[in-house]
């Protein structure tokens, strides 16, 4: 229990550092948003009111603490472009990105583990070798290019979905999942290829160990050895990797949302950066970074839970 408390402490400290760093980064941008928003309507009184509304009063540390207190309670500040609370601007978009990411993560899980096991089981076969080569190529294909290929093939040629015509969750649950399927797959393919590759090398590494030789000497077949002895050890690094890749997938959706015109926080982030709407950009950046830190923490705990060696030491 002591280690969990310590890890949680580190987690909180890292979250604090990450938020401070992101906040600071967006503060060093030159230019005063108040003068920019007011433009020709500028009067000192209006400027003072707006400055107060946007939370731009006081020195850096005061602003940071005020922003942090707001952030924790779900008040993310006010968007410069829309002059509405960031929370309202993000309304519904967070859920879309979350659905896309979770769907994509499940696809990674679904493909990578069986593929990795099969590649390791038949590693000398012609078919497995060919598949390993194809896998290597898939690792190198950027998700947005797969997305464009899908748009062409499944959207324009086969007309399985209408590119750019997102079906909102409220309209039809399955319609929404159906539209998100292709972007999710586009993100999942290279990630699944990498995960499968990791699993193969993890299994191959385990196969060198003494206990495997012992298992063989008792007359087990290669498959039996993999299934009953090797797999549970070989899956350890893969589980950690999978936990951490959820955050990667969210980051990947920033680009893929653009390809499929999915109204998630990724598109919002790119738009907010292009229009210099920094409160929105800052919120999304901190949310994603916090997710990364948190998933690393979860991965750490999971490893500890399933591996007694780590648990005891």
């Amino acid at each position: 229990m002591g280690t969990i408390a310590k890890k949680t402490g580190t987690l909180l400290l890292t979250l604090l550092l990450v938020s401070a760093m992101a906040f600071l980064a967006f503060q060093i941008i030159p230019g005063d948003p108040v003068t920019k928003i007011l433009g020709t309507d500028y009067t000192p009184e209006r400027a003072a009111t707006l400055r107060h509304e946007l939370g731009l009063e006081g020195d850096l540390s005061a602003r940071y603490l005020r922003w942090l207190a707001g952030f924790i309670t779900g008040d993310f500040g006010i968007s410069y472009s829309y002059m509405k609370p960031v929370r309202q601007v993000m309304q519904g978009k967070l859920a879309v990105t979350a659905a896309l990411s979770v769907l994509s993560w499940l696809l990674v899980l679904l493909f990578s583990i069986p593929l990795g096991i099969a590649l390791a089981r038949y590693h000398k076969g012609v078919f497995a070798r060919a598949a390993a080569t194809v896998n290597q190529v898939f690792m190198a294909v950027p998700p947005f290019f797969i997305g464009i290929l899908f748009t062409y093939l499944f959207g324009l040629l086969l007309k399985w979905f209408v590119p750019g015509k997102f079906v909102p969750f409220s309209e039809s649950f399955w319609g929404c999942i159906g539209y998100l399927f292709f972007p999710a797959l586009a993100i999942a393919i290279p990630k699944a290829a990498k995960t499968a590759r990791l699993l193969v090398s993890s299994i191959m590494g385990e196969m060198q160990k003494d206990y495997v030789r012992t298992a063989y000497s008792r007359g087990n077949s290669r498959w039996m050895v993999i299934r009953t002895h090797v797999l549970r050890n070989a899956l350890l690094p893969v589980v950690t990797y999978l936990a951490m890749s959820l955050a990667d997938i969210v980051a990947g959706s920033i680009i893929v949302e653009q390809v499929f015109v999915v109204p998630g926080i990724g598109r919002l982030l790119v738009a907010s950066i292009a229009s210099r709407d920094f409160p929105v950009a800052l919120t999304i950046v901190v949310l994603i970074a916090a997710l990364v830190v948190f998933m690393n923490y979860v991965a750490d705990l999971v490893t500890q839970y399933i591996d007694p060696r780590v648990r005891l030491s």
């Binding site: 890292t14 550092l17 990450v18 760093m21 992101a22 980064a25 967006f26 060093i28 941008i29 955050a247 990667d248 969210v250 980051a251 990947g252 920033i254 680009i255 982030l269 790119v270 950066i273 210099r276 920094f278 950009a281 950046v285 994603i288 970074a289 990364v292 830190v293 690393n296």
Partner: peptide, 22 residues
């Protein structure tokens, strides 16, 4: 090294986007 650890919390595409914003 602390700074380094904190930076790794940001996926590289996100960091690149922040720097472009700056």
């Amino acid at each position: 090294m602390r700074l380094n650890d904190t930076l790794t919390a940001f996926p590289s595409i996100l960091l690149a986007l922040v720097l472009i914003a700056l």
